[in-house]
Design a protein around this nucleic acid. Structure first.
Lengths: 332, 332
DNA sequence: ACACCGAACTAACGCGCGTTACTAAAGCGC
DNA sequence: GCGCTTTAGTAACGCGCGTTAGTTCGGTGT
């Protein structure tokens, strides 16, 4: 079934069929003719060949999306967000996972370029700097949850600072004045940004940040447990009544330390996590109040920006940050 | 950069370039010519246009994959498995989520057919019967984790029976003779199959299955909690020393009931779950021994079968079942 | 000397479609 | 009857490539 079949069946030329299908502006097609063509399409069960169409129009409609792993809640959310926006724009996503292997990444990129993707989305599992393979420069590229060291490529990042601020602010609003921060690896952007927000919130509340209240938990439950012990074993006057943890798994460790000491959450010690890992946050007792990383929104925004770039429009912002919403549960 | 550019640069015809690129059998190309062509490709940075190639060869290389949701561990694993196999076969996956909405599903299917997918993978979140939109008949289709009521389409299913058997067998091997089954909704295939495996294992061990030891937990933690209470509150002689739960969340409920009674896992009561939801199974205390649904393998197998079908080869088995591996942790 | 053959290519068609340039006919004022 | 404009279309090219049916040319056998 091709367009020619439809044209023959409707008694018009192929061009006319094309005009009708594409609502060609400037072409005048009487209703009667249009009706005949649509009827023919229907009767023959014709469907346009997207590939041929792309070839003729020199517009593939594809975007590429490279993630580190397809599995894992993070990637899945980015994919979801990007998918929705893409399909609603009549664009399509060619998805690949690098599995952390540069060779696979390069192969995926090659395939994508062979398919003439009009843009590339490059997403990482955690917020950090990346360097892309050279081939990525051939096509508009947007980084998601990462940035390039040279700062040349547009990127979409979670707003770590406002996240840290919001978490701390929530604890301050609940009346806490001595707030511990069990942080991630202090060298990574998430840890730096969140600490900045934490300190800003404290200062705004007239509290001078006490560096000894900030301890790295190194992103593990055990590390956070140790860190929490240290904070909770301080003399009563100095003991924090609230803990802000770098992620939900670390909050689990903090929970253990708190419960072990016979303290109650949130009555004696309040806890705020980060990441909103549903299966952890929603099943801890009490349920964990935490901040969500806006992965789905980042995926959506990524496709939006790519669409603009692919259309040749300049970007208004080169570096977009997206807020991390606070999810109220029962630990504050 | 087109093939013609390469041909001109190498001083040969486009046809010859095509022959070299496709290793055309029967064509004799001297090494010197081949070298010149490859050099030209390299110098010009030429890459073939996959779309044009598909159009000319009448072979798109695409498979469609429709899931209910992109998020969620199940879909992600299926996608991972399918992706890996597809990319290694030089095939590509057009992925879409129906989000449970028939309209979206139909739209996705339309787009896929417009892209001339050579086959369709249709995956569900839980094992059940489905009816596909009529359009799906236009192209080879394989069902993943589901089956059609008419039994016409090839499908790939988890082997629920052997899963139930394996779980029960593990408990029998550990010396348990009175084993409770907290089942899913008794009307669904997973519940029926697992119970069958459970009873088979018992009979093989010379134990007559006691129907009163089988209680539906209705797939929720609370339901399983109630069911576990009922089983654990039986008179001591009749009290099960092991519980086989329909999924990991239900195992959580069972854990609560067991701990509440001061019983210890696995010493007093052993527990086996199902589904291997990492974030639950690996973080329960003690860690949960459970069976994994082989989603990744199912995705892989799906693409394999589709490749065969798309190549016109007949399938050896219309209905494939894949084993659910037992993951040993600490609850038995 | 001629017929024959394989090696090494190439011209040309078609895949299904978008698009540009052109045409035929109809309507209109004078 | 003539020029002009609008309406309703169409012929033909090209997108980048796979493929078939050749063509050219340097040997080989007799």
């Amino acid at each position: 079934m091709t367009m020619s079949d439809v044209a023959r069946h409707a008694g018009v030329s192929r061009t006319t069929v094309s005009f009708v299908l594409n609502d060609k502006p400037g072409a005048v097609i009487p209703d009667e003719t249009r009706r005949r063509i649509l009827a023919a399409i229907d009767e023959l069960g014709y469907r346009p060949n997207a590939g041929a169409r792309a070839l003729a129009a020199k517009r593939s409609g594809w975007f590429g999306l490279i993630t580190e792993i397809v599995t894992g809640p993070f990637a899945a959310e980015v994919i979801t967000g990007a998918q929705k926006r893409a399909w609603s724009d009549q664009r399509f996503l060619l998805i690949a996972a690098s599995e952390g292997d540069p060779a696979q990444e390069a192969a995926a990129l090659d395939q994508m370029l062979d398919h003439r993707v009009e843009g590339l989305l490059y997403a990482t599992t955690w917020h950090r700097a990346v360097t892309l393979p050279q081939a990525a420069r051939e096509v508009p590229t947007v980084l998601v949850n990462c940035y390039d060291a040279e700062g040349e490529l547009p990127c979409i990042l979670p707003d770590e600072v406002s996240g840290g601020y919001r978490a701390t602010r929530r604890l301050l609003d609940a009346g806490h004045t001595c707030i511990g921060l069990i942080n991630l690896d202090p060298a990574i952007p998430a840890a730096i940004g969140r600490r900045e927000g934490y300190e800003r919130a404290l200062r705004e509340a007239g509290i001078i940040p006490d560096p000894s209240l900030v301890i790295p938990g190194w992103a593990t439950a055990d590390g956070a447990y140790t860190a929490a012990c240290e904070l909770l074993d301080r003399p009563a006057a100095d003991r924090p009544t609230a803990l802000f943890c770098g992620n939900d798994r670390m909050a689990m460790g903090a929970y253990d330390a708190i419960k072990e000491r016979g303290l109650r959450i949130p009555h004696d010690v309040a806890v705020v996590g980060f990441d909103n890992q549903e299966l952890i946050a929603a099943y801890l007792r009490p349920k964990l109040t935490t901040l969500a990383l806006p992965f789905e929104a980042m995926g959506t925004k990524g496709v939006e920006m790519l669409s603009a770039l692919a259309a040749g429009q300049p970007l208004d912002t080169h570096r977009v940050t997206i807020d991390c919403p606070l999810l109220e549960r029962s630990s504050v």
